[in-house]
């Protein structure tokens, strides 16, 4: 036998199977298609969701609102004070109107109660004859200091912070429903 019949001795193959290390063409194209689709999804979804749920991203808004000179209020009396909540949107109009029950405790101290009943949120009314806050929905009752007097409410009435500045009584508006 002649050595020429023998195939030349080849060196051991060192070719790299790239498809094992990376991906082959078809798989690469699949990844391109899926990746592009996902990217389009993210590009359109993130701003939309961020916008619709933007209220999670902005700090809570608060504002001090003047509700009248201190001498308007008699010690021991609870009266309704009307004001406009400035923490909403500029076009809130009529739905930005608020009322709070303002009670003058002594010379310089006030309590301002949100009207929202802590049971299920209906507006409570001050009944001066009974000296109680009463809720029309399920009969929740609160004493004049906002503590629960009877019925289903689980917590005292929500209070707005109050202060007296330059002879004016001021109420701090801000989150009510999320504060409970």
């Amino acid at each position: 036998m002649c050595c020429s019949d023998q195939p030349p001795k080849e060196e051991p193959k060192v070719s790299i199977d790239w498809s094992k290390i990376l991906v082959d063409r078809a798989e690469f194209l699949k990844l391109v298609a899926l990746g592009c689709s996902g990217l389009i999804g993210l590009i359109v979804a993130i701003p939309g969701i961020g916008f619709a749920f933007g209220y999670f991203l902005v700090p809570k808004r608060e504002d001090w609102i003047k509700v009248g000179p201190i001498e308007h209020y008699e010690v021991g009396n609870t009266v309704a004070v009307n004001f406009t909540d400035t923490t909403g949107t500029p076009w809130d109009g009529v739905c930005a109107k608020r009322v709070a029950w303002l009670r003058r405790i002594d010379h310089s101290n006030f309590q301002a109660f949100a009207v929202n009943c802590t049971h299920l949120g209906c507006p409570v009314r001050w009944e001066p004859g009974a000296a109680l806050f009463m809720c029309p929905c399920h009969g929740g009752v609160y004493y004049s200091d906002g503590t629960v007097a009877g019925g289903p409410p689980p917590r005292p009435l929500h209070q707005y912070p109050t202060r007296v500045a330059n002879g004016q009584v001021e109420i701090k508006v801000g989150p009510v429903l999320t504060e409970g």
């Binding site: 209220y55 909540d85 923490t87 909403g88 949107t89 076009w91 809130d92 109009g93 930005a96 801000g174």
Partner: peptide
């Protein structure tokens, strides 16, 4: 709880934003 309220009202109170949502 608070998160649910925020989602429901689109904020901390019932406002125009609640209506738009």
């Amino acid at each position: 709880g608070k998160t649910l309220v925020r989602v429901l009202c689109s904020g901390d109170n019932v406002t125009g934003a609640s209506l738009s949502h």
